[in-house]
Design a binder for these strands. Structure first.
Lengths: 199, 199, 199, 199
DNA sequence: TATGAATGAGTCTTCATTCAT
DNA sequence: GATGAATGAAGACTCATTCAT
């Protein structure tokens, strides 16, 4: 009867809705732009709900950022699997990246975490984690330095996409990755640097 | 001493002070973090001064961002000159970048402009300009694609520095740049892409 | 007594209090004179309450003006009823007006709406409505033109009262209204103008 | 040589310019809307000039209102002369009023003074004066009461014009004035009331 | 004297947060 | 537990007024 006066009966779900709304908003207007009211409106929950589930706006923001990071994580996991299946060649990586770039939301989510980390040391770890994962995938095959170089370049690609209206060419990305990674080393010596051998 | 209640009488200087304070703050707390009050306090001027010189906080922010961009520009000009004098080799570039990275302030200024551009389309042009300048310096020697690849990598390096506590190794940077740019072509034919031609 | 720090919990009433306070102040200091702070003080509510109930000071002003207009409306309704009961003769009208003039508050409320309408086109309709109502009451008996003339004269009387310290004489008003309206036409032909027909 | 660095050399003229600009603005945006800055801009004088010639914004406003009143006065003087020349018949008065109503500026100036007087007792005298002048012109011919009635009606006409988009019909005005004033008494007995003589 | 920079009081408005219901 | 009213701190911005130059 009075059934729907009080809202749904699933705290977990509600919490999730709120976090999701906050995450969306962070991506759209930036971390500093988010307010309780905006989140409540977006999530379709009463204002009070946003403060009930999170002691502080900052807590909510952090949770949202974490959700964003999880999203990126999930995508990275997809990358990991694809690399395992199709082999970690520059061509495959370029494919995966190009795919990722096509999903504006993915790019924004990723960059949002990094941007937020700039002024909030507590988020650094989160941001690190993401980049390091990519390095971890490539390191066994290409060694630490080449993997790092690739990761940094890919980072740059993400920013470029975020700031510019145009998306970088898949072919271009593959070319560069090939230069950076070289051919997958058959007899990997995951040493510090896989120095370009002398002519 | 002679300092009466009423302050100085040098609009130009005052305006500069305010912009400088705002720029510092943007670097420290982010574009969205700055307030009139903070700027006034930092600049050592009364609150009213910040609104007298800039109709709008947004105007002030823009001016500050522009100042930051100018700073980067100046540094880039230094790079341009150095490249002209010492030659645009990966080693030289790596030197210059490593120098730049040592100046935390420079890195932050640069990144601040880019970050601000994420949510403010009007700043995009500014952010573009900076990256494109680097491309412009390298393009004649290495062709457009390689120059772009280097620029994107360097962008990634800047972010990496900004987010992490450690600075990337100069040697590493040189190595990667060498991979990306190849040897400077002796008889440069500044075509679209300077494919490594056969001897 | 039980009055804790946090105040009452009756939005409807609070809203009404705020509007009432604003209306009072408009009457006292004019539309442009009212501020959130004044309203809050007068209503005995915290500053924030005035902005919680009205998105904008302008909204608040409009609501207050509307309240004032409603007040006038109510009074006019009293006039309508009295005219119906006692007959719309100049003497009765003069009685009613003289009564109204005695209530300084009523005069001020009425004039406030008109004054506000001068610089705010959106309030014109409101101001019109009030005058037209009076015309509507008298028109069936006296025709449009005479009714309009009476209304305009009464408008003038209101202003005169508002500006001067003295109130106009009831007898004077009746005399003038008699001149303007003539005797109530026995065989009313509510045409455009009820010209005094020949005997 | 340095001639025009310092502006004109005619304090009187400048003062007049400022007052005129203020008067215009009062008419446009209301007394409370006027600011030093607006006046300076409108008058084309530096900000400092507005405070140099008038100790206080209120002084400036008062001067402007007085100027507005002088304007009305001048117009009234025209009326006086016309009435003397053409005779103070309802037809002539209606002519003059209709002319006045066509000049929106004149109506607004007149109403501005009255409106300002509502909340500023010091301006009451000014507002009175204007109405009383009209009464003074008509009184010798029609007696005090009829003259007053006409004045009040005309006041109502002014407001009606100010608030509405349409201007009242000249014929209507003449008809009403005829009702109010009756025929000019040949053997004027400027008694309290010029009672309508028997048919 | 004339100008416009300087200052701070005061305005509207937004929100995090608290808490009565 | 859930909701949204309540509050006040803080922010952007406007201006009258003062006063150095």
């Amino acid at each position: 009867m009075v059934e729907s006066t009080r809202r749904r009966r699933d705290p977990e779900a509600r919490r999730r809705e709120i976090v999701t709304a906050a995450a969306e908003l962070i991506v759209e207007v930036g971390v500093d732009g988010v307010t309780h009211r905006m989140v409540a409106a977006r999530a379709g929950v009463p204002l009070g709900a946003t403060t009930q589930y999170f002691d502080t706006l900052d807590d909510l923001r952090t949770a949202a950022l974490r959700a964003l990071a999880d999203e990126v994580d999930a995508r990275l996991d997809g990358v990991r699997i694809a690399l395992a299946q199709r082999g970690p060649t520059p061509a495959v990586i370029a494919d995966l990246i190009a795919e990722g770039l096509d999903d504006a939301r993915a790019v924004k989510a990723d960059r949002a975490v990094v941007t937020a980390a700039v002024h909030d040391p507590r988020l650094r770890k989160l941001a690190h984690h993401l980049s390091e994962q990519l390095v971890a995938f490539l390191e066994p095959t290409y060694g630490h330095d080449r993997a790092t170089a690739a990761m940094i370049f890919i980072d740059g690609v993400m920013w470029s996409t975020q700031i510019r209206d145009t998306t970088l060419d898949r072919a271009f990305i593959e070319t560069v990755l090939t230069q950076l990674l070289g051919m997958p080393e058959t007899d990997t010596t995951p040493g510090r640097t896989a120095a370009p051998s002398a002519p």
